[in-house]
Amino acid sequence: MSTRYLSGSAVALVTPFRHDRSVDTDALRRLVQFHIAAGTDIIIPCGTTGESPTLSGAEQFAIIRTVKEEAEGKIIVAAGAGTNSTEHAVELAQHAEKAGAEAILSVAPYYNKPSQEGIYQHYRHIAQAVSVPVIIYNVPGRTGCNVAASTILRLAREFGNITAVKEASENIGQIMELIEERPEHLSVLTGEDSMILPFIAMGGDGVISVAANQVPSQVKSLVNAVKKGNLDEARTLNSTYRKLFKLNFVESNPVPVKYALARMGMIEEIYRLPLVPMSAENKVIMDAELASLGLI
């Protein structure tokens, strides 16, 4: 398997807030150090797991700058910079690059339901506006539209800085088409922790993970085990963390993972509306799983 620039275990980083709902910069710096120590390959602030729809432009810039400073070149810093207005998405991408992002994660334009040509034009404008690599984020369950494999392949072939796709469609046929027909520089990453084992076994390059917020070294070990063909080890790791992968989506992401991180003593359990705390019933279930894994 060839080594591509954007591959391995990437964390879709949460944004820690203080009780007044301002960004908790101290906690953010601690999270970066946690991931450096765990061997996470790529750290991605300001994505949807980072509650990006609730962040101002100034906050986005400051968060990326803080993560970049704390990383000190020890981990690749990509950054979420997507929205459903192409003009605004271009601005966000440019600001993220100025803040120090080494790559841009740009979600497919949601709600608008553009045609495949509209999606192509959206990403074309973004790719031409920045010099850093662009990661296409395809998550139909959230956006209401699917970025077809043919559109992703067209973009990757025409723009050298479209170097990865975060593919969260769970469409095996589409995933295989991407893996088998991609240009050499295109990384194909899963956006689903529960898909890590089969996805990489099919030839995928890694994961952009929610669970890596809680168990970064274990997610990295799972990725590496599959890549090396150590399937018994991979199956054991997958079985151990399967319930956690599922529980992280028992309510809208990132509510469960932020609750877990708060229980682990890493951040405060603070969200920005319209997200609210997890139900008491689901907190009990999450607590039991965290305890069984030795995380609390």
Rank of each mutant, 00 (worst) to 15 (best):
S2P: 04
G8M: 08
L13K: 00
T15R: 02
T15C: 04
R18G: 05
D20C: 07
S22Y: 00
V23D: 10
A27L: 06
A27G: 12
L31E: 04
V32H: 05
T40M: 02
T40G: 01
T49K: 00
T49S: 01
P53F: 14
S56E: 11
Q60E: 13
I64L: 11
R65E: 15
E69R: 09
A71D: 07
K74R: 15
I76S: 01
G80P: 06
A81H: 11
G82M: 06
S85K: 11
E87A: 07
H88P: 00
L92E: 09
A93R: 03
Q94E: 15
Q94G: 03
H95V: 13
E97Q: 15
A101V: 12
A101K: 04
E102G: 14
E102Q: 15
I104P: 01
I104G: 03
S106M: 14
A108M: 10
A108L: 09
A108T: 15
Y110C: 11
P114C: 11
P114L: 06
S115V: 04
S115C: 04
Q116Y: 12
G118I: 02
R124S: 14
Q128L: 14
A129Y: 00
A129V: 04
A129K: 05
V130A: 06
V130D: 03
Y137W: 12
V139L: 13
V139N: 06
P140H: 12
R142A: 13
R142F: 08
C145L: 15
T151F: 03
I152G: 08
L153P: 12
R154W: 00
R157S: 08
G160P: 13
I162G: 03
S169I: 08
S169A: 14
S169K: 08
S169W: 08
Q174E: 14
I175F: 05
E177K: 14
E181C: 13
R182A: 02
E184G: 01
H185D: 13
V188D: 07
M195F: 00
L197M: 09
G203F: 04
D205I: 10
S209P: 01
A212H: 01
Q214N: 08
V215Y: 04
V215S: 10
V215Q: 10
V219H: 01
S221C: 07
S221T: 10
V226D: 06
K227P: 06
K228N: 06
L231C: 05
D232R: 11
T236K: 12
T236N: 10
T236V: 09
T236D: 13
S239P: 05
Y241N: 02
R242W: 15
K243E: 15
K243V: 11
N248H: 09
V250R: 05
E251G: 10
S252M: 11
N253P: 05
N253L: 04
Y259I: 05
A260R: 08
L261F: 01
R263Y: 10
M266E: 04
I270R: 07
R272S: 11
S279M: 00
A280F: 03
A280W: 06
E281V: 01
N282F: 11
L290C: 07
G294S: 09
L295R: 15
